[in-house]
Amino acid sequence: MENVIEIKGVKKNFGEKTVLKNINLTVTKGENIVVLGKSGQGKSVMIKCIVGMILPDEGSLKVFGDEVCSMSEDTLKAMRTRIGFLFQGGALYDSMTVRENLAFALQRVLKITDENDIENRSKEVLEAVGLSEVIDKMPSDLSGGMRKRMALARTLIVKPEVILYDEPTTGLDTITSKEISQLMLEIHEKYKTSSIIITHDMQCARITGGRVMVLNEGEFIAEGTYTELENCNDEFVKLFFK
């Protein structure tokens, strides 16, 4: 299988603090990976390194076969158009309607100007996330769960090959969290995307994860399926499944 993301020996310090000590991770095409870890362990820093928002101090980080650290501005931009990033809070543009949020990247990144095409794509992704009726609403009119769905729709509209989820179910109730996790799985199956899901929600990990990896103190300490890790003897890993 083709590797879409290859991380080898990545290190990242912020001042005196070492956030990523030695990260090694490979994501193949169509693979779903869940990264579990406590808060402040560098999970979000890792996925921000993947999209070139933060540059690692050491190590190699290849996305679609190209080294992120040595990419030119244009190559980085082109690489980002193939990756979807779902932020923890959704990061919806709150001065724009849902329609404008969806059209934003289409018009500016994919340079689509045909109004009908934009409208059709918008309706298609909103339908995929179960939000067909909100197209003219403002993000502030949406509930927490709807905002997450909407953010997912905005991520999907550019048809990314890889989706990076930064704590997609944080701040949601158990039922909505389960719905979002199932939606992520449906999207993975329908659009054949590769994903890295950063979470500490075990329900989300169970529903979405093919391979689960546990991050502690800047490095991965365990890897396996959900069931394998559930029966793991490591004390730290056990804490997640209690």
Binding site: V51, M53, K77, A78, R80, T81, I83, F85, F87, A91, Y93, F104, A105, R108, V109, V158
Partner: peptide, 9 residues
Amino acid sequence: DSMEISGAN
């Protein structure tokens, strides 16, 4: 950050 990651300017 979201605008930047999406490839917009």
